[in-house]
Amino acid sequence: MNQQQRKNCQNRIFNYFHQWWFRVILCCTIVFLYAPIIVLVIFSFNDSRRNVTWHGFTFKYYEKAIHNNNLIEAFLNSLSIAFFNTVFSLILGTLTALLLWRFRFSYKSVYEGIILVPIIIPEICIGIALLVFFNLCGWPNDLPWPLNLSKITCAHILFSFPFVAVIIRARLAKFNLDQEEAALDLGANHKQIFKNVLFPHLKPALIVSSLLAFTLSLDDFVITFFMSGPETTTVPIKIYSMVRFSVTPEVNAASTILLLITIVLAAIAIWIQRGWAKEVEKS
């Protein structure tokens, strides 16, 4: 069998992509995944409170959402929590990745497992464990803004930094140690190596993981639910209380704004990761 025939044969047997059943299932899956979200976005522009039939285009509910002071306050809270979460998760995650990449120590595999525990165990358990913990240790409740968000921020850092560590460690694994040796031979000190060799290599991973940490924090509901008080609501908590009340175009509008922010962040992250994959292919 020559190369061409072999290729044809392979195409015939394994090219599930070209078979009708795959296309039907894929189309149904995509409709299932996206239709509800798209409907939600479209109907945020609907000029009717009943929210089922189309009554014309309007920005009315966005204006309402923007003039809803509680929502804006929740939005500012969410953004500040996400910002502090990103900074701290990036520091802790990078340190963890460097530690696991650089050093040999006893019980290292156990340590690696423990780092992943916040990702693995159910969110509700982390939520109630931290609720009990903050209550027992007498964490002050009446701090001025933004310190009153510290409980939520600490909880978010706990489940964000393992993700950062995993991403940065994957990038570190691709670091060519010869580069470091070359820099040492050329007389660079450790600080210079970190700044001029290691950091540029890590940069895409740092950007991707900070975007991930930001969205994780912006999106979290369950753990925040147990940490938040009347003064410290976040956007998901606010939307939740609106959803419990009823399905209205205003909720659609608020959800669409949050959706837009996360989609933009996700698109940037995925785009950077693609460039990174291409770079690996080249080398």
Binding site: L40, D219, I239
Partner: peptide, 11 residues
């Protein structure tokens, strides 16, 4: 990447 709450609400 889309918020869990928003996806549930959409459903």
């Amino acid at each position: 990447w889309v918020n869990l709450l928003i996806r549930t609400y959409a459903l």
